[in-house]
Amino acid sequence: MKIARKLERLMAMDDTTWARHANPWSGWTRMPILPLLALSIWSRIWIGWWCLLPVLALVVWTYWNPRAFPEPVSTDNWMSKVTFGERVWLNTGVHPIPDHHGRMASYLGTLAGSGLVPLIWGLWVLNPWTVLLGLVITVMGKLWQMDRMVWIYQDMKSQVPEYAAWLR
């Protein structure tokens, strides 16, 4: 949770940015960032130090993405609710979420993060199967955590009027 809050501050997420990030295009276009980052790092064997250009482009895209799309007309979709759940989860200091959600979200974040170990190692030693294993663990863990974020939002919107107002 502390890491997530630090990332939120690093990304300079304010209410306007969160509203724009609720656009499903924002969420879905973030999904390929990690595989593309892995490919960019792997490409050092083909293009040498030039691999830093796509890495830099992906870092810039990661920051700009929540700002790149307009506020959605409708937020009644899975990806928008993922974004809402992330906001709810980050706001537990103000409106606590049920313990079972907090624990599970943390476990799933740990699962997703654990995939980074084989991913980084595979990229270091240029082992494609280890890279693939790391990507599968990380992406599947993240997708599962995203689904938990929808569940958190669904449970909390009836308790906090501000959260319910995000849905349109």
Rank of each mutant, 00 (worst) to 15 (best):
V82C: 11
M140V: 15
M79W: 14
K157D: 06
Q145F: 05
K142F: 14
W124E: 02
A164G: 14
V55M: 08
M1V: 06
W78P: 01
G122Y: 01
A112Q: 09
G134V: 13
W89H: 07
F84E: 06
I137H: 11
G115E: 12
P54L: 01
W25T: 03
S106Q: 13
P70Q: 10
R44F: 12
V88H: 02
A57S: 09
I41C: 08
V139F: 13
N65D: 07
V150S: 00
M146F: 14
A164S: 15
T16R: 08
L56F: 14
W78Q: 01
G93I: 02
V131Y: 11
A57F: 08
S106E: 05
D14C: 11
L143H: 09
S80P: 05
R87C: 02
Y107T: 11
M1K: 04
P35T: 01
L52G: 05
P72G: 02
H100K: 00
K81T: 00
A57Y: 08
H21T: 07
M31L: 12
M1P: 04
W18L: 00
V150G: 08
W25I: 02
C51N: 13
A38E: 09
E86G: 02
V125L: 03
D14T: 00
Y153R: 00
A12Y: 12
V88G: 00
A12F: 11
